[in-house]
Design a protein around this nucleic acid. Sequence first.
DNA 1: TTTGTATAGTATCGAATCGAAACTAATTTT
DNA 2: AAAATTAGTTTCGATTCGATACTATACAAA
Lengths: 192, 192
Amino acid sequence: MMTIREQTADNLAAMVRHLVRATEPDGDQDGLTPLQWSALQYVGLANGMSRTVSGFATYNATSKGTASQVIKSLVDKRLVRRVPSRQDARSAELVLTSSGRKRLEAERRNTLATAIQALSDADRERFGTVIATLMNELRAPHGRVQLGSCHDCRHLDAGGNAPVCCRTGSRLEEPDLLALCAAHTPIERGGN
Amino acid sequence: MMTIREQTADNLAAMVRHLVRATEPDGDQDGLTPLQWSALQYVGLANGMSRTVSGFATYNATSKGTASQVIKSLVDKRLVRRVPSRQDARSAELVLTSSGRKRLEAERRNTLATAIQALSDADRERFGTVIATLMNELRAPHGRVQLGSCHDCRHLDAGGNAPVCCRTGSRLEEPDLLALCAAHTPIERGGN
DNA sequence: TTTGTATAGTATCGAATCGAAACTAATTTT
DNA sequence: AAAATTAGTTTCGATTCGATACTATACAAA
C-alpha cells in the first residue's frame, strides 16, 4: 500500500485557518470581543508609524469604519491612548496604556504566539521564512501592503550610527526595529 | 549595529493571522459570505465521517447553531447536499453538488491554498511539519479534537489489503486518505 | 426492558459585528 | 488656489453569531 507523506496544499491552508480560529479568545471572555483582542494585540505589536487606525484596518482586512469603532471602544475602556501625531494633524499614534499592557500579558497563554514560541529555534526560523514567502506571494494579487519588520525592509538605512527608516526619515529605536510595520517592503523582491 | 534575523513569535502569529484574514474572499462577492465559503471549503476537504455539521463546527470553532445555519444556507443554494447516514439516523453526511464543486474551483485563485501550493516541495513539507507541531501543542490546552489526515493517524490500520480506520471500521478509499479528518489522533504523541 | 445520559442537529432571539456611504479636516499635487 | 488624496469619524442597516432551549436518536447500565 502506498504511504502518503505530505499534506496537500488545501489541507495545510485549512489547518492554518483552523489554528487561527481556534486560538482566538472565546467570545467576550473577560469583556473583550475577538475583534477588540485583535486590535489590542496589534497596538501592542506594531511600530510607531503603523500604530494607527488605518494600520489596523490594513492588518485586519477590515474597513476603516470598523477599525475606527474598535479603537474607539478600546480608548473608552482605557486600554489604548491616542497621541496626536506631530507630523500629521489628522492622525494619532495609538499606544497601550499600562492597563492595556497588563490585559494583553494576562491573555498570552494559549494563544498562537505561545505555541510558536514553543517551537525549536530552527523550526521557528524556518517557519518565519515560509511565512515571509507566503506574504510575498499574496502581495501582488491582492495589491496589499506587506506586513513585516524592519530587518528585511528596503526602507532600512543602517548606514549611519543609528538605523533610520528612509521612508519616514525617523530614527528607529530598538523596539521599533522588531515591531510590525504596515509599510514594510521586502528587499530584493521589488514592490511599490 | 546589530542585525535582527528572526521574527518574534508574536510577530509571526500576527502575520499568520493576517494571512488568513487577508485571503478570505471579500464580503459577499459572488453571493457567498466568508462563513459560507469556509463551510463550502470544509465540505470539499473533509473525509466522509467528518463531513457533518458538528465536524464543521469543530473545524471552524463556532457553535453548532451557527454551523447548522450555514450548512442550511448552502443546502438551500444547492451547493451542498445532505446524505442521511446509514449508521446514525441523527446525522447526515454532507457532499458537494456539482455546482458546489464548480463554485469552489472558480474561487481557488488568490487563496492561501494557492500560495502554499506555489511553495517549493521542500518548503511545503517543512511547513507541514511545523503546522502539525503547532496543532499538537494547541491540542492539550484547548482540549480540542485534532485536525489531520489519515497518514499519521493512529487509527489507521494498513495491515490488510485495504487501509481501514480502526475507529469507525470503515474502509478508506483513496480520496479519504488524503482528506481532513476531525477525529484525527496523531501517532506517537498520545492523546485520547 | 426501562431509565438515564450523551450526541447530532435544529430553531429562535437578541446582541454584536461589520461594511457602505456620506462626511470633516488636513495634506499633497497640479 | 483648486483639485485630488488621505486619515479618520459617524450613522445606519443587514448579517452574523452565540446562548439557550429544544427534538430525536444512540448508547450504556441496571
